[in-house]
């Protein structure tokens, strides 16, 4: 198994801009999207190992996307990022097999740690 493939989806460009290089430096291959429709198209083409997505977005929201992603590739681990206000909705998504949540604003080290745990699970460590 080579590098893990990660998708980052958040309609706030700053989230993608900061997360992509940070995760790349950790040795992952990262695609980032600010439009959920584009991301939806992309998961039809590529199976990601990990998807990091915001929940509340215009158009297709994070919940729809993660449902679709899980159907296509059950092995994909999904990490949900969300504002504090939407934490309750976020908890619902646990039923959909979400790996973990992270509330905005968060530290880079926090998300890196969650991603490392997801990687450990994927690699069966």
């Amino acid at each position: 198994m080579g590098k893990l493939k990660i998708m980052v989806l958040d309609d706030e460009p700053i989230v993608c801009k900061r997360l992509k290089p940070a995760l790349e430096k950790q040795g992952y291959e990262v695609d980032s999207f600010t439009q959920s429709a584009d991301a939806m198209e992309q998961i039809k083409k590529v199976d990601y190992d990990i998807i990091i997505t915001d929940l509340k977005m215009k158009g297709i929201d994070g919940m729809q996307l993660l449902t679709e992603a899980k159907q296509r590739s059950p092995k994909t681990e999904v990490i949900v990022i969300t504002g504090f206000a939407t934490m309750e909705t976020a908890k619902e998504s646990f039923h959909k097999g979400v790996f973990d949540f992270i509330a905005k604003p968060f530290k880079l080290s926090e998300i890196q740690e969650v991603v490392s745990r997801a990687e450990a699970k994927i690699r069966g460590e």
């Binding site: 706030e12 905005k104 604003p105």
Partner: peptide, 16 residues
């Protein structure tokens, strides 16, 4: 603290 770059925040956080 957020201006130090260790956090990822968005406009909503600033508004709140």
């Amino acid at each position: 603290e957020k201006s130090g770059g260790d956090y990822i925040f968005d406009r909503k956080y600033l508004i709140d």
